[in-house]
Design a protein around this nucleic acid. Structure first.
Length: 400
DNA sequence: AGGTATTCACATGAAACTATTCTCTGAGTTAGG
DNA sequence: TAACTCAGAGAATAGTTTCATGTGAATACCTGT
């Protein structure tokens, strides 16, 4: 252990970082490498707004970390600059629909918009229709072009019905002063397939796809940032390439590549090293995985923790590596009695198991055992090195 | 042996319910003129 | 009479229950050889 003074000392020394924020997620670079084509396309689609002409609704697809949000934000800034210079009354609002408690329902998205436009609206208690009316009122208060960017729109539509989008596209007919256009950003490429065709045609008049970066492209991106982020000679040979390769494996996620580099840097610095070597990338990779898992396990509500513990206990006692929903439910019930928690229905526990699958803590595969029914076959996806720690967290937090 | 028909043990979906938190409204109350 | 208080009605939301329907393939059950 270094001790508190030691920690402060190592921070007082010269950092290997020159400007760490460059590697953080919210950083907006001057130039967006390898996205020129998409940016041009989007720009040409949106350009008519500078002449106060209605802009086509636009849909942007691409996996996480492919630069969708970054590109759209970039164009937004440029457009606003230009609009100001040309005296065009243009408003562009960006809303991330995934943010819990802020914009993940119809009501909240509208409320957030109203706030951004300078209105006030309570968090709850009002009929949604009232919120609509206030929104329209605000829009109509002056003549303007309004572009609404809805990021991670697929997340929101899973919860809200697609009527919401329909209403938005239809809003123009109720507006006399304002022209409103939508830009939807989605991680899910199949998203548009499962929504109402009426909505689809209105919504996605134009589409732009962001393909995943490949490893060389990721390297280029990293190179750009490394120049600004680190002091010279901090990043050893092969480090960039490795970051890029690891991230390319994760569907070309640039964010992941940058995270790897940043955390590797932090780890190296913590050990008061002057350079980042390959081993730190491996450590960073592990740390990212570990933190993600531990964070999920810790913050999950009680019933989820009980379910997870049931799964882990079963896998431990049972030599077969295969366990099924029914077994889990039985063990879960026992655990509930032991902790005097109320027992949820099997229906619900089934959903909880499905959610763990989504989170990547387990692998659950729906199989048919023929005469013996249909069920999920569950395997733990937590790395063995972490199992002990996860279990301890569960036992602690459940006071067992 | 080969072909159907059953059947299990859940999965998956939709709707309804519950508890909580919050707004708005209007009746009743209060205090000052 | 104007301002204030406060209870009740109505909303949104998250988490759940209830009810209903779906489903893939191992078996049971035929059927004719």
């Amino acid at each position: 252990m270094v001790g508190v003074d030691g920690i402060f000392d190592s921070f007082a020394r010269e950092s290997i970082f020159k400007n760490k924020s460059v590697l953080q997620a919210n950083y907006n670079p001057e130039i967006i490498t390898h996205r020129e084509k998409q940016i041009d396309t989007i720009a040409s689609i949106l350009a008519p707004c500078l002449r106060m002409e209605k802009v086509s609704n636009l849909f942007v697809y691409g996996k996480t970390g492919t630069g969708k949000t970054l590109s759209v934000q970039y164009i937004k800034e440029k457009l606003l600059e230009r609009a100001k210079a040309q005296n065009v009354n243009l408003t562009i609002e960006y809303i991330n629909c995934k943010l819990k408690k802020i914009a993940d329902t119809e009501y909240r998205i509208l409320a957030e918009l109203i706030r951004k436009l300078g209105g006030t609206i309570p968090d709850t208690g009002l009929p949604t229709e009232v919120v609509y009316n206030r929104f329209i009122e605000l829009l109509e208060s002056k003549k303007q072009m309004f572009i609404l960017v809805l990021d991670e729109i697929d997340q929101a539509i899973k919860k809200i019905s697609s009527d919401f989008l329909y209403n938005l596209t239809r809003l123009n007919s109720e507006l006399s002063q304002t022209q409103i256009s939508l830009i939807g950003i989605s991680n899910d490429l199949t998203f548009l397939d499962n929504i109402d065709p009426r909505v689809r045609s209105g919504l996605s008049e134009e589409e732009v796809v962001f393909a995943p970066y490949n490893a060389p492209q990721l390297q280029d991106i990293l190179k750009e940032r490394v120049k600004i982020a680190f002091r010279t000679d901090v990043v050893k040979d092969g480090v960039l390439e490795k970051c890029a390769a690891l991230a390319a494996r994760e569907h070309g996620d640039a964010r992941r590549a940058l995270d790897l580099l940043r955390i590797a840097g932090e780890l190296a610095e913590r050990e008061s090293k002057k350079e980042i070597t390959l081993e730190y990338i491996d450590k960073a990779n592990e740390k990212i995985e570990r933190d993600k898992i531990l964070d999920v396990v810790e913050t999950e509500p009680k019933q989820f923790q009980l379910t997870l513990l049931a799964i882990m206990n079963l896998l431990e006692s049972n030599n077969h590596p295969k366990i099924f929903t029914g077994d889990i439910y039985n063990t879960y019930q026992e655990l509930c009695k032991k902790t005097s928690t109320e027992i949820l229905t099997q229906r619900r526990v089934g959903d909880i198991i499905a959610e763990f699958d989504m989170l990547g803590l387990i692998n659950a595969l729906v199989i048919s055992k023929g005469r013996y029914g249909r069920t999920r076959e569950v395997k733990l996806a937590i790395p063995p090195a972490l199992v002990g720690k996860v279990k301890k967290i569960l036992l602690d937090s459940l006071a067992l």
